[in-house]
Write a protein that binds this DNA or RNA. Sequence first.
DNA 1: GGTAGACCTGGACGC
DNA 2: GCGTCCAGGTCTACC
Length: 294
Amino acid sequence: MRLELAAKPPFSLYSVIHSHGWAGLAPFTLDEENNEFSYILALENQRVIELIFEEIAEGVSVEISGPVDDTEEKEISDVVTWMLGLDQDFTEFYALVKGEPNLQNIEANAQGRILRSPTLYEDTIKTILTTNTAWSGTIRMVDVVVEQFGMSLPGSNSKKAFPDPAAIAATDEMTLREKTRLGYRSPYILNLSREIASGNLELESLKRTNLPVEEVRKILLSIKGVGSYAAANLLILLGYYNYLTIDSWALKMVSHEWYGGDPITPTEVEKAFEKWGEWKGLAYWLWDWSYGKG
DNA sequence: GGTAGACCTGGACGC
DNA sequence: GCGTCCAGGTCTACC
């Protein structure tokens, strides 16, 4: 079955896919050579399907593995709209950054949407697995979590969906450590899964809350394993751009760009992007780091 | 409120 | 081969 969904213009599936490294993490699959981008999704009724995305003039088309009923179609439509940010509007941001050399062509390339997972739970796990490790380590850890705890796509042993909180909550820390080699991150992942599975933490409600950004950040920071960097990353995925994802890379880039390579602190990074106000997180995210490119 | 030091793991690097 | 270092941070104890 094929589903066509409209996006607020301008839209570029390529820009969403390449907005950060998420497209390279399971259960996303990105085949640049054959121009194929897909995701294995577990529906609320526990049915596992594959979604293959393709850009069309109005937005995106989604090829779904097998027939779906009306309820499933509505769920898929909502999930894809969230993942690709089809309803997001960056008009104000484009107007604000017009004329900034390091943010040129942002509107022409339809940049601004950041690829999301279907659930904030999945994005939180993945964000925790990016901390204090190389990117290759993140790929390995996400792979093994999906492989060990995800449900299989019917007819395929290799294609699996991202596990729901209950699937991980049911295990114990020793087993999780042995199966996944997540190291000290294991208790963080287990704790988060159990809090959500038990109903103590309604993480997904943050996707549609009216709470001020500071309150949302406090909730995110209350999760073990989520510090200032991880919280800023999740806030950007949620559509709040008030905080910067200040990691070791940010310190290196800003030091080179504005401080002659001298050692700096997060305060200097904040100062460097203060002028972009509530859009500063996105301005930092999309900044053209000539040093980094070299 | 600020800051060392420890933390799992696996890949890169030097010898 | 083997040992050491460290990577897109966070937590905790201590001051």
